[in-house]
């Protein structure tokens, strides 16, 4: 009769247990490091003053933009100017957004409605939204600065992933690619030059237009009211998406009330617009694509439904087809 010496399997068992533990600890540490980096980036993009130039590539468009960002009296300011083609700029001052067409001497002011949630400070990104996974990559140089690469993968066909190049010194986001599951790039932002600033003056956020000779108007879509009991709802949401807000908007150019619902999975968002059919001579039917942004439109029960978001086509289609009267 053969008797096993208990000590004979202690060594292999210890090795196996150690391997299992290390296999568990290493990814956990890497995930923590990735989350730390993401948190640092989010905080830096909100709090850091900086200026620079960047390239924004979306679909068949390529825009060169100049940006300056900072805080004045506790309020976040940002000015973004398009440098190629027709002059255009966007100025954010807290919740107020002003679009400026200098050549036409025209400004459009837009204010986030007071009863809607204001932009939130960075939440705890240590636990990434469900259906996403983060992975740390190597290092690279962007805009002459050392960057750490972070990959955030969408875990199904309903969302894109992100590749981010984050400045090792400041935490600023130097480059961001919105990528599909096959690593195709749908949208890209990349700084070609960036300069952290200690302070930034109010004069940096003045629009290019000066004097009185320009037209200034408020965006009618800013006349929004929050809906507590919306007439339309979306069923069969793609996994991970949740409702953020319902509101009625007076949508240009017809000025009719449009129900606007916003959904998010924590990183990407989708808007659903429902309005009486017939207000538009050329309503959207089927799918459209503009870089990373997809849109899907169809008519239901005498109403035009349009789903728009920086998500794959399958996602906006599912949202659009899921809209029904409550």
């Amino acid at each position: 009769m053969r008797i096993h010496d208990p000590r004979s399997w202690r060594l292999p068992l210890a090795a196996i247990l150690t391997t299992i533990m290390l296999a568990g600890v290493a990814p956990a540490a890497a995930a923590d490091e990735a989350a730390d980096l993401l948190m640092r980036m989010a905080e830096a993009m909100l709090s850091q003053a900086y200026e620079g130039t960047l390239v924004y590539e979306h679909g068949d468009h390529l825009e060169s933009l100049a940006i300056v960002h900072g805080h004045i009296d506790g309020q976040e300011y940002e000015r973004l100017r398009v440098l190629n083609g027709e002059p255009f700029e966007v100025i954010r001052e807290g919740d107020k957004v002003t679009c400026v067409w200098p050549a036409e001497r025209r400004m459009l002011e837009d204010q986030r409605p007071g009863d809607l949630p204001a932009p939130q400070p960075p939440r705890d990104l240590r636990s990434l939204p469900q259906h996403y996974a983060a992975e740390l990559g190597g290092t690279a140089r962007v805009a002459g600065r050392e960057a750490r690469i972070l990959r955030i993968a969408g875990e199904d066909h309903y969302r894109y992933g992100y590749r981010m190049w984050i400045d090792r010194e400041t935490g600023l986001l130097l480059r961001s690619d919105l990528v599909g599951r096959d690593d195709s790039v749908y949208e890209r932002i990349m700084f070609t030059h960036i300069e952290p600033l200690d302070t930034v003056g109010r004069e940096r956020f003045r629009p290019s237009l000066e004097g009185e000779q320009y037209s200034r108007q408020a965006n009618p879509s800013a006349d929004s009211t929050r809906l507590e009991d919306p007439e339309w709802e979306t069923t069969g949401l793609p996994p991970g998406f949740r409702l953020v807000s319902h509101q009625n908007e007076a949508m240009p150019p017809h000025g009719e009330a449009v129900q606007h619902s916003v959904y998010t999975d924590g990183l990407a968002s989708v808007s659903i617009f429902v309005e009486p059919a017939g207000t538009d001579a050329m309503p959207l039917r089927g799918l459209s694509r503009m870089g990373a942004v997809h849109a899907f439109g169809h008519e239901i029960d005498g109403h035009q439904v349009t789903a728009v978001g920086e998500v794959p086509a399958a996602t906006v289609r599912q949202f659009g087809l899921g809209v029904q009267r409550r």
Binding site: L38, H58, E78, P117, A118, Q120, L125, L173, S269
Partner: peptide, 13 residues
């Protein structure tokens, strides 16, 4: 309002 802070929304605008 609910996205990760970055320059993407402004750039899209």
């Amino acid at each position: 309002a609910d996205e990760m802070p970055n320059v993407m929304p402004s750039s899209r605008l």
